[in-house]
Design a protein around this nucleic acid. Structure first.
Lengths: 246, 246
DNA sequence: TGAATAGTGTCTTTCAGACAGTATTGG
DNA sequence: CCAATACTGTCTGAAAGACACTATTCA
């Protein structure tokens, strides 16, 4: 291997040929929720200490893997999620990794990106001081993001939209109890397109996903049956997408 | 952040608070092909030099990111692929990343896993001396793999099988020219189940994926129309899976 | 009673599954 | 002609799209 330069290995190294430079290793999380009838993503403002790249810019929550605290990548992601939102066990899925010589001015770096879905109710409860929700429109998010985070965010939105076509992912954006029209509204917000009511209901009710509870949602009109997620934490996969995309 | 220990940062560091231990960063590739009517994966035998973990065991091809040679993760994956197989531009997709304190006895390490599909014709041409093809059966591969590579391989097979249900991925396992029955056979090998001929043909022909060429495959029976992939390198996504999985 | 939303039924379309039937080669 | 495989057509069923219709609440 060419280009090895002097840089000590980690703790426990016994001189086994690991004396070459290591990339920086980070974990970043794209955290989605629904607020005010729109898809939102959580961003944090970066500090401006000496040597910090992208001072005061907004970025995805994340940071370096701490080899002393994080048993594995998912644990690192959960730690960062709980630090920023207080949410303990959301829907969390690995999104992919981005690594290059140039994405971080401090040197070769690779980030492991995750994406999380949390219900609106949890989205406000214990937010970190430096964190803020931003609405997503067609092109992304308003502030210019640090590093390659705009690209990562775009990939996350794409992954979310595409999986919503054939999975029950939006169920993880709902509160404990919700009605079928509310669930459909969540699908429509994420997909940014209207869905057929009756096909939607048939699909959701025939999937082994939700169960009715002995309660109704009251309003200024006909009350709606309330449902809750069945125990299964895994999303349901449907055999078809919602619409053949034109 | 707790637990920082002395370890110099990479080249170009200017003392910006990067003096904490970094995980090892590797890239591994799951390379699939079809040989003898079965799905095969490429494995390499590990060395047994001083300090090498899992001496003489089989492992996925891969290794450390070389910050001096690899511009980004995908370039690193392509480099390792061409080193082992001579194949320059196959279908290459990121699979995910695996990182933990314990997966490598040398210390905290994270690997970025890719999976590649190459045609059988390219599978023999320029194979590295330490590399061998292994057939995959229902449970995986015969030899016990180093690190967590059995888990990564299993994830790759799962991803491949699941995407084959609704994409044109198997087209990337075919040679330049192929017939529809040959393509169907490739689907059936990967899925390990028979598909309906007429539905298969309708789907493939109505997708903007392949085009007939002015040639037939001769045999001891009725000749078959030869096709080739259209220019588009990206896989086609179908709106439905092949079968509703029971 | 009317507005509003929840929920159902009915008809059509699309496409996979099953499978029969036709087409074209070599022996 | 026969065997073998390529390819097409026809019927059925499942589920989505469109949309009309009924149901239940509050004001």
């Amino acid at each position: 291997m060419a280009g090895r330069q002097g840089q000590g290995g980690g703790a426990g190294e016994k001189g086994g040929g690991l004396d070459f430079p290591r990339p920086l290793t980070t974990v970043d999380i794209v955290i989605f929720t629904i607020r005010q009838e729109a898809l939102h993503v959580l961003l944090v403002r970066r500090g401006h200490a000496e040597g910090e790249p992208f001072p005061d810019a907004f970025a995805l929550p994340g940071g370096f893997v701490d080899v002393a605290r994080d048993a594995d990548l998912a644990a690192c992601a959960r730690r960062k999620l709980v630090e920023k939102t207080g949410v303990v066990s959301p829907y969390l899925e690995q999104l992919g990794s981005w690594g290059s010589a140039t994405r971080d001015p401090r040197g070769w770096s690779a980030t492991h990106a995750y994406f999380a879905l949390i219900p609106a109710s949890a989205a406000e409860a214990a937010l970190a001081a430096d964190a803020r929700w931003f609405a997503l429109d067609a092109t992304g998010v308003k502030p210019k993001l640090a590093f390659d985070h705009a690209e990562i965010l775009q990939a996350a939105v794409q992954r979310l939209r595409s999986k919503v076509e054939y999975t029950s992912l939006p169920a993880f954006l709902m509160p404990e109890e919700f009605t079928l029209p509310e669930l459909q509204r969540t699908y429509e917000i994420v997909l940014d397109r209207a869905l057929e009511k009756s096909a939607f209901r048939t699909r959701m009710l025939s999937a082994d996903l939700i169960e009715p509870i002995a309660k109704m949602r009251k309003g200024p009109n006909r009350p709606a049956q309330l449902y809750r997620l069945k125990a299964a934490a895994a999303p349901v996969y449907f055999a078809r997408t919602f619409n053949a995309p034109e």
